[in-house]
């Protein structure tokens, strides 16, 4: 299988390749020599398995997300998501941005309804194509998430988009989530916790996408 490296994260290297005469993405979790080997192998194996399950579940739940193709011990082969990362995206029109934010809120609701929290729900993991938003990187996803896990998805997004964009996300979430009141209450209670307060209010409020 010919592969071409297209990206490197803290945890894994991403390659493009071909599979059954179509384009595909390969994610390979690299060993980390700084930590004990037993921990390293366990983490990489568990995370690969967990991520594969999450990819499959998200895709099934109707979220625009990659399709799961193959899984090995430390590798996942999946479909391609074309578009631009929201973190690199230049906003075109208000209307388009609202549609994108609505889809981000809806995608969170659909994942949560399906029993999945993304775990790293930030603009770097949202892929924009036209006025649609897709979700990638389920490496930190949690199955059977608690209210807290779900709330963290919304908080991460809230910290990284403008307040008005976040309002659109929240409105869509409220509409599509089967458990929105509980989750949004938890968002407020997490933000009231001491350690979080300064970070949410001061450090992140000035940074919109």
């Amino acid at each position: 299988m010919a592969v071409k490296k297209i990206g490197e994260g803290a945890e894994a290297i991403i390659y493009t390749t071909r599979f059954m005469s179509r384009s595909a993405v390969l994610k390979r979790r690299m060993p980390k020599n700084y930590r004990a080997r037993a921990i390293d192998e366990l983490l990489r194996r568990q995370r690969t398995k967990n991520e594969a399950r999450a990819i499959a579940l998200a895709h099934e739940s109707g979220v625009r997300s990659p399709e799961l193709l193959l899984v090995a011990d430390y590798e996942i082969l999946m479909g391609v998501m074309r578009g631009t990362m929201l973190s690199n995206y230049m906003r075109k029109s208000k209307k388009e941005m609202r549609s994108i934010m609505r889809e981000i809120g809806k995608a969170a609701a659909l994942m949560h309804n399906a029993g999945l929290a993304h775990g790293d729900y930030t603009p770097a993991n949202i892929i924009i194509s036209g006025s649609h938003a897709g979700v990638i990187d389920f490496g930190l996803a949690t199955m059977l998430p608690s209210t807290e896990d779900k709330a963290m998805d919304l908080i991460l997004m809230k910290r990284s988009v403008s307040p008005s964009d976040y309002r659109t996300v929240e409105t869509a979430y409220r509409k599509f989530s089967s458990d929105s009141a509980k989750v949004l209450n938890r968002v407020s209670s997490i933000e009231r916790r001491g350690r979080y307060k300064t970070r949410t209010l001061e450090t992140f409020s000035s940074k919109g996408v």
């Binding site: 980390k32 004990a36 921990i39």
Partner: peptide, 17 residues
């Protein structure tokens, strides 16, 4: 000890990226 330190170093690695 190994678990606690691995957690810290992994979070640092993400921050470094």
């Amino acid at each position: 000890q190994e678990t606690a330190f691995a957690m810290l170093v992994e979070a640092m690695e993400r921050a470094l990226f």
